[in-house]
Design a protein around this nucleic acid. Structure first.
Length: 484
RNA sequence: GGCGCAUUCGUCUAGUGGUUAGGACGCUGGCCUCUCACGCCGGUAACAGGGAUUCGAAUUCCCUAUGCGCUACCA
């Protein structure tokens, strides 16, 4: 049997980080087993449609490298893959359930439902009271027929067997049991003719021959309903795997209030997709516990649902940042330049030219965690510094420095080889001759040239900047900046 | 309120009856060193609580607590 899994978002906006992980686990599972990955759009709630949401979703998924074998954007043998385009199907299956006695018509108005709930409040039981309401269970066949013919709005509800214990297996959680009377008579078909999630996902998962339903933990409580539905239709029940939730710092469900939740936000923040995927994959699952960095292929190779954790995982931005830094260090200068140049251009920032930028990146890739930080920490490579860290400078300013520094400047002017290694050697010799520690030359020099007390190797920096630029900067500093 | 699921360092996790409870992020001490980083070496810190089973429980069972989820003609 070929494994077929699906990612089934509703098009209400952007791709949520939690949604990405669900899609990822589905994808890893499918690829691991050589199965198929299907995208299905669940747009049965006509009141919550957002323009462009579907395109946005697909864009984010593609960015992440999650490719589909079937879906609305590429077709397939089990389409259509958008539920609103399968409209007629659901009604047919709803009717089938009525005929087999597993569902019934209900004619209650929203007000009547509210009133019923209000009355039930004291008992703590908010479920639909099938015996007290206006539905085809209580009405005669003629009355029911009349209601429909007269055009009264109605829904189709599932008739949950109260006495039955409903048991299903979850790959991650094991056996889950619920007693029938705890399960509500869920609406299956709404009065606008659209199905609810419960009917639609069961019908579609069956028709699309989905073998494993891998979805968020929030679906665990409604899985008994789905199990019942499969049985009512006489269909095989797929395997279930309910994934733990992604959490905020305070352990509540990951939400907008406490940070970014849209995948596109993290793209905009400069996180690499491979780093992001690596990080997300390890939130709730880990093949061994002694490694943090896995390539996409390795994730596929090692993935298994049995090792997925049961408890929710806090989304830790600091660790993501660290993972990103790990990836940054392994990427080539060309990759990094390709990544950052469009950004710099969009910001109208002068990076001199690609070659120069690449050399700057080479100098700084060990010093930054996110490429978007590059320009800020290296701006003195592209323009003369305007501010100087005088506090740091004073710390390394000896009495003799005032005398030695001009000598060193003259010495530098005589240097013909401006590559870093000879420059360094020459400086060492100069310092020996002056009987002066090299750090007391290099540190002040750094601040004069870059303005900052931090940075890459001084001589590498000088080489890149060029002799004239360095001399100019030192002279400018000497002439204009007062040490007090 | 009801039902369900969960609970190992602050965080991500390894662990499936016998371990000095391991790794990683963070924090931190040191080394390296022209600064800052990187890297390397070290430190910090956890089995929610209580019973039961067992010669022996982080690992099995029960209870409690806590957290989370669901409880819509949303998904």
């Amino acid at each position: 049997m070929i494994v077929r899994v699906r990612f089934a978002p509703s098009p209400t906006g952007y791709l949520h980080v939690g949604g990405l992980r669900t899609a990822l686990y589905n994808y890893l599972f499918a690829r691991h087993h050589g199965g198929k990955m299907i995208l299905r759009i669940e747009d049965t709630d006509r009141t919550r449609l957002v323009e462009g949401a579907q395109e946005n979703l697909i864009k984010s998924l593609e960015w992440a490298g999650i490719n589909f074998d079937e879906g609305p954007h590429i077709g397939g043998d089990f389409g259509p893959y958008i539920q609103s385009e399968r409209f007629d199907l659901y009604k047919k299956y709803g009717m089938e359930l009525i005929e087999s006695g597993h569902a019934y018509y209900a004619f209650d108005t929203p007000e009547e439902i509210d009133a019923m709930r209000e009355k039930q409040k004291s008992t703590g039981d908010f479920k639909y009271q099938r015996d007290l309401m206006k539905n085809s269970l209580n009405l005669t066949t003629e009355e029911t027929k009349k209601q429909i013919e007269e055009g009264h709005p109605y829904v189709i509800r599932m008739k949950v067997p109260h006495e039955q214990e409903i048991v299903f297996q979850d790959i991650i959680r094991g056996e889950v049991k619920v007693i029938g009377k705890e399960v509500d008579d869920q609406v299956l078909l709404k009065s606008d003719g659209f199905p609810t999630y419960h009917l639609a996902n069961v019908v579609d998962d069956h028709l699309m021959q989905i073998t494993h339903v891998i979805r968020g933990e929030e679906w665990l409580p409604s899985t008994p309903k789905h199990t019942l539905l499969y049985r009512a239709f006489g269909w095989d029940v797929p395997e279930f795997a309910h994934l733990p939730l992604l959490l905020n710092k305070d352990k509540s469900k990951l939400s907008k209030r406490q940070g970014d939740v849209a995948v596109e936000d993290y793209v905009a923040k400069g996180f690499f997709k491979d780093a992001f995927i690596n990080f997300i994959a390890l939130l709730g699952w880990n093949p061994t516990g002694d490694r943090e960095i896995y390539s996409f292929d390795e994730l596929i190779e090692f993935f298994n649902l049995e090792k997925v954790n049961k408890a929710g995982a806090v989304f830790d931005l600091e660790k993501l940042t660290w993972v990103n830094a790990q990836y940054l260090r392994t990427k080539s200068m060309d990759e990094l330049a390709d990544y950052i140049i469009p950004y710099l251009e969009s910001q109208n920032q002068n990076y001199i030219n690609r070659d120069f930028l690449k050399q700057v990146i080479d100098l700084f890739k060990e010093r930054i965690e996110n490429m978007l930080d590059l320009y800020e920490t290296t701006n003195y490579m592209f323009a003369k510094p305007t501010e100087f860290d005088l506090e740091a400078l004073k710390k390394n300013w000896k009495e003799e420095t005032t005398e030695i520094m001009p000598k060193y400047l003259e010495f530098l002017k005589t240097q013909s080889d401006w590559t870093h290694s000879p420059l360094y050697e020459a400086t060492k010799i100069f310092c020996e001759e002056q009987n002066f520690k090299i750090k007391f030359i290099v540190n002040p020099l750094r601040i004069m040239i870059t303005g900052s007390s931090k940075g890459a190797g001084m001589f590498e920096t000088m080489e890149l900047l060029g002799k004239k630029e360095c001399i100019d900067r030192i002279e400018y500093f000497w002439a204009n900046i007062s040490l007090k």
